[in-house]
Amino acid sequence: MPQDNRQPLAISCNCRKIEKLKSEWKYSGINVEQSKLTFSNFEEWNEAASRVKDTAAAYCTEFDEIRNKRRNSLLLCGQVGSGKSHISVAVALNFLKQKIKVVYMPYRDVITKIKQNMIDQEYYSKAISKYQLCEVLLIDDLFKGKINESDINIIFEIINYRYLNFLPVIVSSEFTIDRLLAFDEGVGSRIYEMCKDYAVEIEKDIRNNYRLK
């Protein structure tokens, strides 16, 4: 009886898919641990968590229809530990599966590195362009830590370019919408206008911190 070789072929095919996914995560800046942050393992442990998940899910579902419109972005802001980063990454992973290229920008790390290399004009331009031009940009923990004028100028360059060119952003931040607007109206108002239809502000309340549950 001839030997059935279909099983090894299926295993080989599956391995290639996994390697391709890992390659896409690497391009996006998403690490292997973050790749476990999916919609399916996000716990809807209170009303705020359900609103975050439902809004992000609606954003994913409607993305093709809105991606070239003014309000084509997602904002999750407010209380620390409320699942904002988890769901933001889950959205990015969902897009990657649909062949939509996402670049992950951990705000504090990226801004620090850019500022350290500002004197190198070639590096600076290349770094800024990466976040200006990508198909979808995920900014995680916007304005985290101590912020100075250079930080604001850098993020304004990125946000303003994307705003003018109708390029989507996914933003997570501990800042409330009012605080974003008060802190820097130029950046805050652009983000708010882009995210207006898909914005969730989680009330600053220790009971909304999953880590303390």
Results as ranks from 00 to 15, higher is better:
Asn148Arg: 03
Asn41Trp: 09
Val89Asp: 02
Val52Asp: 01
Ser88Glu: 01
Phe63Asn: 08
Thr55Phe: 09
Ile30His: 05
Lys101Ile: 12
Tyr27Ile: 14
Leu96Gly: 12
Leu37Gly: 00
Tyr192Glu: 00
Glu203Asp: 12
Asn14Phe: 15
Glu47Ile: 11
Cys13Glu: 15
Ser125Asp: 11
Leu75Cys: 10
Asn153Ser: 14
Glu65Asp: 05
Cys77Phe: 05
Pro8Asp: 00
Lys196Thr: 00
Lys213Glu: 15
Ala10Cys: 12
Phe175Trp: 06
Met194Asp: 08
Leu76His: 02
Lys69Val: 07
Asn46Met: 03
Lys144Met: 12
Phe143Ile: 00
Asp141Tyr: 01
Val171Asn: 03
Lys36Glu: 00
Lys26Ile: 05
Glu43Gly: 01
Asp140Gln: 06
Lys126Asn: 11
Gln116Asn: 03
Cys195Pro: 10
Ile158Tyr: 00
Tyr210Asn: 07
Met105Cys: 13
Asp64Gln: 08
Ala56Asp: 02
Lys84Ser: 04
Asn153Asp: 04
Ser73Pro: 04
Glu44Leu: 04
Lys113Gly: 00
Ile170Arg: 03
Ser73Asp: 02
Tyr163Glu: 06
Met194Val: 04
Tyr163Asn: 05
Ile177Thr: 12
Glu24Tyr: 07
Asp109His: 11
Asn208Thr: 10
Ser189Glu: 02
Tyr107Ile: 05
Tyr192Asn: 10
Ala57Ile: 07
Ala182Ile: 02
Phe175Ala: 10
Asp178Asn: 14
Ile139Leu: 15
Leu180Ala: 09
Val89Arg: 04
Phe39Ile: 11
Met1Val: 13
Asp141Met: 04
Leu37Asn: 06
Leu21Arg: 06
Gln79Glu: 14
Lys204Ile: 10
Val103His: 13
Lys53Glu: 08
Ser23Thr: 06
Ala58Arg: 09
Phe42Tyr: 15
Lys113Tyr: 04
Arg179Ala: 11
Pro106Trp: 06
Ala10Lys: 15
Asp109Gln: 09
Ser129Thr: 05
Arg67Phe: 01
Ser172Asp: 14
Thr38His: 07
Glu157Gly: 13
Met105Val: 06
Glu122Val: 10
Ser129Asp: 14
Val91Pro: 04
Tyr104Arg: 15
Lys130Ser: 08
Arg162Met: 01
Asn160Tyr: 04
Ile147Gln: 06
Ile155Thr: 13
Leu212Arg: 09
Cys77Leu: 10
Gly145Pro: 02
Lys53Ala: 00
Glu62Asp: 15
Thr55His: 08
Ile177Lys: 11
Lys213Ser: 14
Lys20Trp: 03
Val102Pro: 13
Leu96Gln: 12
Val32Cys: 00
Lys36Thr: 11
Asn31Gly: 07
Asn68Gln: 05
Lys113Phe: 05
